[in-house]
Design a protein around this nucleic acid. Sequence first.
DNA 1: TCACCTCCATAGGCTCTGCCTATGGAATAG
DNA 2: CTATTCCATAGGCAGAGCCTATGGAGGTGA
Lengths: 299, 299
Amino acid sequence: MNLRDLRYFVALADTKHFGKAAERCYVSQPTLSAQIKKLENYLGVQLIERQPRKVTLTETGAKIVPLARRMLQESDEIIALARNEHDPLSGKLNVALIPTIGPYLLPLVMRRLRKQLPRLKLMLYEYQTQPLLEKLRAGDIELGILALPVALDGLDVRQLYDEAFTVAVPNNSELAKKANVKVDDLNGETVLLLEDGHCLRDQALDVCSRVNAKESEDYRATSLETLRQMVAAGLGITLLPELATRGPFGSGQGLTVKTFTRPVPSRTIGAVWRKSSSRGEAIKAICDVLETAMKESKK
Amino acid sequence: MNLRDLRYFVALADTKHFGKAAERCYVSQPTLSAQIKKLENYLGVQLIERQPRKVTLTETGAKIVPLARRMLQESDEIIALARNEHDPLSGKLNVALIPTIGPYLLPLVMRRLRKQLPRLKLMLYEYQTQPLLEKLRAGDIELGILALPVALDGLDVRQLYDEAFTVAVPNNSELAKKANVKVDDLNGETVLLLEDGHCLRDQALDVCSRVNAKESEDYRATSLETLRQMVAAGLGITLLPELATRGPFGSGQGLTVKTFTRPVPSRTIGAVWRKSSSRGEAIKAICDVLETAMKESKK
DNA sequence: TCACCTCCATAGGCTCTGCCTATGGAATAG
DNA sequence: CTATTCCATAGGCAGAGCCTATGGAGGTGA
């Protein structure tokens, strides 16, 4: 039994005339006749009573027409639904960002994303790098925005922008008085870091290992905001991503943010997604927006 | 798009494994793979995300699964419904009888019909011959029980039984005192008849035309029961079908029923149905029951 | 009554679809 | 590195759907 045979049958039920039903279905009358006969044989019941010049439904046929009609409607629904979903730039997309990016990047780009991709509904999540990658591989999210490099098995990657590190110091520190800070100036300083699990920790450690700055043995923070407050309280200095020092997050209230002289330590922010993802076009479009926004934001 | 492809897709959605889905559908894995690919192409959307060793639904695929599942259920419902209707001796059958047969025949045969054809639901109607034939040809009823002969264009016929006429006379009439009545004894009598439209009228007139009995010019009746009461009131005599004189309908209360000597005037009762009817077997079964019942009832 | 028309069914041939087996490519495990 | 798993691709075959041509039954009109 197939949908086409049901379509023929319903057309015949509506028209009560083999020739007109065939026309309606864009096939020849013998085709329609044979297919309906085949349907009757398959079901083992007579659906149509064939009088000279008069076609009527049998009782069984009359019972089956509404069911067949419903099936055809649902078939049309599936096609309509697929048509609606066809636009690669529409529908939901689950996106996760790491905590040292999300709160600082999104205010810069959300308006632009909404304007340029109005039919995309971004569902936003915040995970540290490791759980982010797990959920990405599990299919729970479709796109991750994080600091590179990460292990790429099964994933595609695209670099979006480089982000400089800055140094946040207490207002009364010697470094606060310098016009510019060199990495060597961190020598001997106590550096406050995020706890394990945040990749920013490892990135800061990497920078600090080039000089004799050591990590605080007494304090670790769970967020950049906590780090900021510990610096303002004079407990040490820390490295902050540049985006995390813009606007309300910059110098003030016991804390001064300094940029490094060249070579500026930095991290690369990128996007990762499954190679097998069906949302390649939407992902590309989002990345384009992010990359453009960050380029223009550096002017 | 066809039901088989949808069945493959739903199996894959359930198993998340091409090989297992193929097994479930009793086809090879490449077949299932290719058909699902074809479905995706037809709909223009990706339904399945194909990771190494891992199959997941896309968002669109997840939306389409419940619709597909419902369609397959309805397909199964159609097949189940057809299977239930397959029994030629089950389901409804619209049967019409003429008024001079229905009330007298059915009490004799309904128990037997119920017992021998328990799954047939007889919907019973009463029409005079002409409207009965119209509704039969229109498809509103499927079987008519009436007095023959009738015009048979497009119809099949079967004789069921012969029914003798009797004569009903007032108790105080000379005919009431005769042991048996001959047709010639009606000579000079005033005969009460049914109004136009009842074939029994024409049949009685045919019998009366052989002798000089004349129809009452003052009275016509709309039913056999009315006829009976007019005879009891002494307004004339009438011819009654034999079945209409059995049990509570026989002699009594001012009226005597007499049988004719040979050659007994009679009418033939038969069944008619459309040649194109799909209910041949049920119709045959009913006629068998009626015919047997009447044969045995004559002993 | 005959000729013509309408209407559905049947027959024969062609194209397309669904299916199989065989094989390839990618990824994973030992 | 080899073996296994898993899905996709390739090539060939049988069956299904479709067409045109035709037949048979019934109805209509002259």
